[in-house]
Each structure stands twice: as C-alpha cells, then as structure tokens.
Design a protein around this nucleic acid. Structure first.
Lengths: 200, 200
DNA sequence: CCTTATTCGATACACCTGCATCGCAACGTG
DNA sequence: CACGTTGCGATGCAGGTGTATCGAATAAGG
C-alpha cells in the first residue's frame, strides 16, 4: 500500500477551502477547480476525496454545522458556573454568529441554508443541525425560565438569532444593534417568567 | 415606429417567470433560456428587455420586494379599524410569509437574500426594502406598545419574522408552530409594556 | 410603393462546469 | 531489487452558460 495519505484530514482541508470560497462568493462561486486551487491540491485529489460535488458540499456543510454546534455545547458545559439566563444569552449570541471573526462562517451558513431549501440532501443535514440546537435551547430555557413554555421560547430565540444573523449579514443591522436586541430579548424573557406564570 | 410592445408589462411577465423558477430551484436554477421558455417568449425578447442577467434579477427582486411591502402597507392603512397590537401581529405574519400561498414567494426571497450577501447590487435593493419595512414596524410598535423602545422592538420583531420564515422553509418548524411563536411574542410584547415601563 | 426604424427569433461564440480517463510517480512487499 | 498497487496531476469531453450578432418580419412615414 503505497503513498498512504490521511484522507480525513485532507477532506477537512478541502472543506475549509469550500467554506472560504462560499463565504466570498456564495455557493454558486464554489467550483471544483477553485476549491482545488484554494486548498492547494489538484483537482484529481479533490475527486479522490469526494466522488461528486454534492458529496463534497454535504461534508462541508456538516463541517461548519458541527463547529457551531460544538461551540454551543462548549458553552453549555461551562454554564453551571453562570446563571442559566446569561448562559442562554451567550448561547444565542454564539448561534447568531455575531462576532466579527465568525462573520465568514455566518455567510457560509446562509449560503447553505438557501440551497437547503431546494436541495433535499442538504435540507436533511440542516434540519438535523437545527434539531440538536433546538434541544439544547429547550433545556436552557427550561432551566432559565421555568415559568414559560420552553418549546415555544426556544423556537422563538433560535429564530430570532437566525433572523438577526441574516440582518447583520445583509447590512440592515450592525452587529452591535443585533447584540442589543438579543440581550434585550433574553432579559425580557427572564423578567417575564421570574415574575411568575407563563406569558400570554 | 413599428411593432410597439409594452416593455413594462413584458418585464413583469419575465419577472414572474424568474420568481417561479427561483422558487423551484433557487437562484442558480435561473437560466436565461429557462426564463424565456417559462415566460413564453424567446431569448431575444428577454435580452431586449434586460441588457444583462443581473439587470433582470434586480428587477425581479424589486418586483417581489414591492409585492410584500405593498401587502404590509395595505395592512397598515386598514389598521385603524383594529387594535394596533393585532395590526402588528398581522403585519408580522405577512412579512413572515407564513401563509401557504406565499411559500413560493418566501423561497424566492431567501434565494435573493443569500445572493444579496455577496452581490452588492442586490444588497442595496434588499437593504432598501428592509429599511422601509423597519420604518413601518417602528411606527406600529410605538403605537401598540408605547412603553417599549420602538426601534429595538421593531428590529426584534422583524428579525423574528424572518427567522421563522427560514425555519419554516427549511422544514424545522411547521407553519402553525411559527405562527404560534409569533403570536406569543406579540402578546408578550403587548403585555410587557401595557404593564408599564420598558423591559430590561 | 419603398424606405427605415424597430422588434424578434435563431444561432454563433467563447467560456466554464462537473466528471471520466490516462499515464506517471511513489511506496510497501515479495 | 523488481513489482504491483495506490494516489495524483493533467487533460479530454460533453453539456450548459451569458452575451453578441444577424437576418427576417413588421409597421409607420415619405
């Protein structure tokens, strides 16, 4: 067996090239040739790692999805140290990808999102990602705001975070404004249910 | 001057073909040839109406943006008859494009949105649309919830509506769940500020 | 009637796409 | 050391893309 290369690490290398390209020019700007160039390998290598372009995109999508999910989970495990409410705020901020250094990641995510609406294979992956996020959020909400309906509040928070991400990407909101909105919302949630019964 | 055709109506005809195609296969599935076929004209006619593809997409984007904005505005003018809070709910529901018959429009909008992040020309149009929506929402919030910070609440509501739209399109939420979240949020907003001061 | 301006449909063109193929180089094993 | 297996880079290929061009059909003005 000659020339054994670590396929998995190469796949990650290529996935990162995909992400950088998608962040710059959207998913339509992702070409096998450009990916190969950007990753510093030849087209043949890309073709050996992924039988087809769709397979490559699916891998890249899981790659970024996992990274975001991982960060949220990391936030969760060190949440006991903080109040559940602030943990919720941090998690939402994380999901909203508001920090400047995650802007590229957010662009990639939106590009995949738009494609996932019309491509069922991507849709499945995206849904799975959101399902896990949702579970985590429900848990956090139940802990932080025992009075409210956790399912609904979690859905609202997740949707709000995503909407804010999009609005920041578009340039309709600044990152600071979005953070302010998110912070205000979480504070309101905490206030509403610490006051007693569920809202509505 | 021979064979005078109504260019404007033909442009709208083509824009609708663009929307139908974008709703089915995303913006990448929009081809000049397919557009011409779908609109029932020849490629030459499309090229006479729009010098370039980008020009065509821009027109189509404004076309759907105007339609949504128009519906929101129509909701606004007949709002005096209803409470400002329910008017706000209706407007948000309208923006979220939750009704089944607007699902296609929502897909088109998301397709444009994703492209607008990386194409400045589309971005300007999208931002302009959101700016107008935002103004209307601020007015409604100020009327419905005098206690709260209208700017921030309007931003939150708009982002929430958009986020819900995306989650419904992806299949993470059903239309009913989204409507429930939206309704709950508006109710909470009303409750929070009718109780007195702004939240936080 | 003939000219002329305008629209339209078809086609040509250059380019780019994803995928398949093929020869060469690299390596562990006999 | 030879050898065969495996990876890889380059190139070929068929299809599709946006745009430019061109001839024909049409309808007004002289």
């Amino acid at each position: 067996m000659p020339r054994q290369v670590d396929h998995e690490s190469r796949r990650r290398l290529i996935a990162e090239a995909v992400c950088r390209l998608a962040g710059e020019g959207g998913l339509e700007g992702v070409t096998l040739r450009d990916v190969a160039t950007r990753a510093g390998v030849s087209m043949g290598a890309v073709q050996r790692c992924f039988r087809t372009k769709e397979e490559m995109l699916l891998f890249a999508l899981r790659y970024v999805g996992d990274r975001v999910g991982e960060r949220v989970r990391a936030n969760l495990v060190r949440s006991p140290a903080q109040s559940a409410a602030t943990a919720l705020g941090h998690a939402a901020t994380e999901v909203a990808l508001l920090r400047e250094e995650h802007r590229a990641e957010a662009r990639v995510w939106l590009a995949f999102l738009a494609q996932a609406v019309v491509a069922e294979s991507l849709g499945r992956v995206v849904r799975a990602g959101y399902a896990e996020l949702s579970r985590n959020f429900v848990r956090l909400v139940a802990e932080a705001a025992p009075g409210a309906d956790p399912e609904r509040e979690a859905r609202a928070l997740l949707a709000l975070a995503d909407g804010l991400t999009v609005h920041v990407l578009i340039g309709h909101l600044t990152s600071g404004e979005a953070q302010d909105v998110l912070h205000g919302y979480v504070a309101g949630l905490w206030e509403r249910c610490s006051a007693g019964g569920d809202a509505r």
